[in-house]
Structures are given as structure tokens and as C-alpha cells.
């Protein structure tokens, strides 16, 4: 940006996302999205190990269940859930496609999405993992 020499240039501080709670929640949301990609790779590796046979697959599963990895997974899982919840909020706040004449309040859309989420999760339990 062209500036006269007497202007004081602005520089954003590196820790800008600690400046308020909403910025911090945004960074956690973005991190949650990145964690999803990491789990995508973990799942891909699971398929690789499944293809390789029972001993390879079980060894990988055992590695996932050693305490340090397991507790790291719990923290990352919290970020994945936060990512899901924020995604439902964002759908409510953006609504690029409107199904009603007036845009719905975002909390209503969020509520509908959470209910839908619970329904889809139940369907996944039965259709993909063979029920309880």
C-alpha cells in the first residue's frame, strides 16, 4: 500500500488470536479441521493395515490404544467435535442457499443440524458398524 513517509504503518501482532475469546475459538475451529485431515490419514492407514492382514492391523490398533496415543486422541477428538459444532453454527450464520423466504435465525439452523447430526450418527452405528 503506498504510504506517505509520515504515516505509522500497522503491523499485526503474531498472537492476534489471543486478543479475544472469539478469535481463540476460531483458531481452535480451524485446528479441528486440520485434525480431521490427520484422522483421514489415520483411517487410510487403517485400511492399508486391514489389507495387510490381521497381525498388521491388530498391531496398529494396539498402537492407537497405548495410553499416550489414546489420551492424545481424546484431546484431538474434542477438537473434532468442536469442529463439527462450529460447522453447524457456520451453516446457520452463512446460509448461502435459503430454503425459506426469510433466512432462519442461526440458532434454529444450528438446532436442526444438531438433531440431524444425532440422527445421522445413529444411522452410521446401524448401517456401517452393524448396530450395538
Amino acid at each position: 500500500m503506498p504510504m506517505t513517509s509520515r504515516e505509522y504503518a500497522w503491523k499485526r501482532r503474531p498472537g492476534w488470536w489471543l486478543r479475544n475469546r472469539r478469535y481463540l475459538m476460531f483458531q481452535l475451529r480451524e485446528a479441528g479441521g486440520v485434525i480431521c485431515a490427520l484422522y483421514g490419514l489415520v483411517l487410510l492407514n487403517m485400511l492399508v493395515q486391514l489389507r495387510a492382514g490381521e497381525s498388521a492391523y491388530t498391531a496398529f490398533l494396539d498402537l492407537l490404544r497405548t495410553p499416550p496415543v489414546l489420551y492424545l486422541n481424546v484431546v484431538l477428538f474434542a477438537l473434532v467435535v468442536w469442529h463439527a459444532l462450529t460447522w453447524f453454527m457456520l451453516i446457520g450464520k452463512a446460509q448461502p442457499i435459503q430454503f425459506t423466504r426469510q433466512p432462519l435465525p442461526w440458532k434454529v439452523v444450528f438446532g436442526i443440524n444438531v438433531l440431524l447430526w444425532l440422527g445421522v450418527s445413529g444411522a452410521v452405528v446401524y448401517l456401517i458398524f452393524g448396530g450395538i
Binding site: E7, Y8, A9, W10, R12
Partner: peptide, 16 residues
């Protein structure tokens, strides 16, 4: 206002 070059005190340059 953050993110803008400062002209003087609280006055920023918003030509951009």
C-alpha cells in the same frame, strides 16, 4: 482502528 496506517493520533488513512 487496527489494521490501518495511522495519520495522526486516532485518525487513520483509509484511501486503500
Amino acid at each position: 482502528l487496527s489494521n490501518f496506517p495511522i495519520l495522526k493520533d486516532l485518525v487513520v488513512d483509509f484511501d486503500d
